[in-house]
């Protein structure tokens, strides 16, 4: 599945990456699967996306849960809890 990944704020800095196009293997079906798949790449992914950290995720620019299914060609963003206002 083709996905466009985006990272913001402390995640972007920790990874040294703002955006990346990937083709995820077939077993990556949900947001949680994708996070696990990225963690398996090792550091800095394993450290920045570590399962204990509170990370929000947006699918096609809408906030979603870990259990949400991915869709072909989606833009998937990972970021820390928001701090605007």
């Amino acid at each position: 599945m083709k996905l466009q990944l985006r990272f913001f704020a402390s995640l972007r800095e920790g990874l040294g990456l703002a955006e990346e196009g990937i083709t995820a293997p077939a077993e990556v079906k949900t947001i949680a699967d994708l996070r696990g798949y990225l963690i398996q790449r090792g550091d800095p992914w394993a450290e920045v996306l570590a399962s204990g950290k509170v990370i929000r995720c947006a699918l096609n620019q809408e906030m979603v849960k870990d259990t949400t299914s991915l869709v072909e060609g989606a833009e998937v963003a990972f970021f820390p809890p928001v701090t605007g206002g």
Binding site: S10, F79, P81, V82, T83, G84
Partner: peptide, 13 residues
């Protein structure tokens, strides 16, 4: 304002 604080994607450094 309350909703913006928790749902709008802004981050402060």
């Amino acid at each position: 304002m309350d909703y913006l604080k928790t749902a709008a994607p802004f981050w402060k450094k």
